[in-house]
């Protein structure tokens, strides 16, 4: 028993040493893929789908680690303090990394410190009601909300999330008063919808695809219709200029070398073009995006300006 252990230990020791010695070409050792949310959510599912392809392309193991807490803030607070080794990347989400530092006093990170590599997918907001709901269109909901201020309830995932902001935008654009009820995740809001405890949900396209038999999807908040829900009109088509949703990508520690970022960016872009991956993602209701490093930085800056203005106008900024 002891002998075998000794052998295993020796091998392990040498394995570790040899890896560190040979570390000249990138990547040459396993890469951590940190998901700052619980397993089972949208970010986690995407990471687990990407894992296999990432390993094929990069030629090293990719280990998914969940580091949840504070709506992702714990993971990002740690990311910005990490040493830029290039061997750890963290899933990053919009609007989270913009709105959290805006709304919280001590988030532990700044929006600009989250160093994006690639934003690969998004889930536009959709407005849904239960199958047996008296509302059949966006117009019905807005009229009801105008006649009965506050009585129209819409659930969604979290406070100051894309869902919450989507409801705020809808209120701002239409002048109606809607009560937003946050739940602990997009999945946790579904029972409240199916049980008619909320009037409707502002949720993500993925949920619309998953529960399409039990719900009516009234509108989607993307610029154009999404492939997974071809029959659902956009808010823009219906006359309301609302585009809102969550974007997901990965980021690395500030100061990571440009070459390493390029390698990761190319790998992720290649996965986004893999037909098998594309089909799986579409089936699950994700919309694929292609924001490389430079485009991501611009996207974040643009959205930050927009959210600062929106929250300022609503008087919610501190």
């Amino acid at each position: 028993m002891k002998k075998t252990l000794a052998i295993i230990l020796t091998i392990a020791f040498f394995a570790v040493i040899s890896i560190t010695v040979l570390a000249d070409s990138y990547p040459s050792k396993p890469i951590d893929y940190v998901v700052p949310f619980d397993p089972g959510g949208e970010s986690d599912l995407t990471a687990r789908l990407q894992q296999k392809y990432l390993e094929e392309i990069l030629g090293v193991n990719v280990l998914i680690k969940n580091k949840p807490g504070g709506g992702g803030a714990l993971g990002w607070a740690e990311l910005v303090k990490e040493k830029p080794t290039g061997y750890s990347m963290t899933g990053c989400n919009l609007p989270h990394t913009i709105v959290q530092p805006l709304m919280r006093e001590n988030t532990g990170y700044e929006t600009e410190d989250v160093n994006p590599v690639f934003y690969f997918q998004s889930t536009p907001n959709i407005l849904v009601v239960p199958k047996n709901s008296p509302f059949n269109s966006l117009e019905d909901i807005i009229n009801f909300a105008k006649e009965n201020p506050g009585a129209m309830t819409l659930g969604g995932s979290g406070s100051y999330s894309a869902n919450h902001l989507g409801v705020l935008e809808l209120e701002q654009v239409t002048g109606a008063t809607i009560t937003y009820i946050p739940f602990t995740g997009s999945g946790a809001a579904i029972p409240a919808l199916l049980g008619n405890h909320v009037g409707g949900l502002m949720t993500y396209t993925t949920m619309g695809v998953n529960y399409k038999d039990d719900i009516k999807i009234l509108a989607v908040a993307s610029e154009e219709r999404v492939p997974s829900l071809p029959d659902v009109p956009t808010f823009i088509e219906l006359g309301y200029d609302i585009v809102e949703g969550a974007y997901r990508g990965v980021a690395v520690a500030p100061g990571t070398s440009a070459e390493q970022i390029k390698i990761l960016e190319d790998a992720l872009r290649k996965i986004n073009q893999n037909p098998e991956f594309v089909q799986k993602m579409n089936e699950m209701g994700f919309k694929l995006e292609d924001y490389g490093q430079q485009a991501s930085v611009e996207l974040v800056a643009k959205r930050k300006e927009y959210y600062t203005q929106l929250l300022g106008e609503l008087g919610l900024l501190k």
């Binding site: 002891k2 252990l5 230990l9 392990a12 280990l63």
Partner: peptide, 18 residues
């Protein structure tokens, strides 16, 4: 040493527990 190493290795390498 053996106990600590054994647990550490089993957890980190075999089970991928962080």
């Amino acid at each position: 040493c053996i106990q600590v190493f054994a647990f550490y290795l089993v957890f980190s390498i075999l089970l991928h527990v962080p």
